[in-house]
Design a protein around this nucleic acid. Sequence first.
DNA 1: AATATATTTCCATTATTTTGGAAATATGAA
DNA 2: TTCATATTTCCAAAATAATGGAAATATATT
Lengths: 103, 103
Amino acid sequence: MRLAALAQETRLAVFRLLVQTGPEGLCAGDIQARLKIAPATLSFHLKELSTAGLLKARQQGRFIYYAPDFKAMNALLGYLTENCCDGGECEVECTSSATTTES
Amino acid sequence: MRLAALAQETRLAVFRLLVQTGPEGLCAGDIQARLKIAPATLSFHLKELSTAGLLKARQQGRFIYYAPDFKAMNALLGYLTENCCDGGECEVECTSSATTTES
DNA sequence: AATATATTTCCATTATTTTGGAAATATGAA
DNA sequence: TTCATATTTCCAAAATAATGGAAATATATT
């Protein structure tokens, strides 16, 4: 379940960081350094997010880069909009331009 | 955390049912009958959703009606769109008209 | 091959969430 | 007041998830 993958402090933080970073992504070590998470723990969450389809991983040398899968995120938003925002005054709008949201 | 409230099978089912039902809502007993959940369990989840701000409850006689809080749902979608769908090709669109999604 | 670094897997521990029976509370009806 | 129904709270058991140290794996460098 994609929702469940995002519904966890640490994972949401990781995902947000990666969204901010953009499509190039960050390698595990960088994420670790930025968010101060034990390697094993981070690895666990990265797998969780990847399994859910929210992250794409690409190996580069001995680094593994993780980047958000925007398509998946769109699908999730689509699902929520369709199934959980109907019948009502739904008014979601996409700010395609970076809305620089400080942590 | 609102995400966490929705990120649970049973609660998502409850919320979807209520969204389908509309602003009048359903009383606990009806939800219970439809989704076949033990009363104590349902009560627990309803509280969870209410606490998260996703449901509004109104008492009517000895029945308690629960209805989705569409504003809260919009806020959640807004948050996700802002924070988790930036930098990318985000293209969420709201289908304000009922898109009859069968369970 | 030996060494160094990046990341993951293994695994046990701890923490959190979910579940539902039974008792309690609330409201209404007779 | 007594009885019936709706819902919740209490509480303990069961299930699931998160954490991180230590060992394993993978890749690169010398």
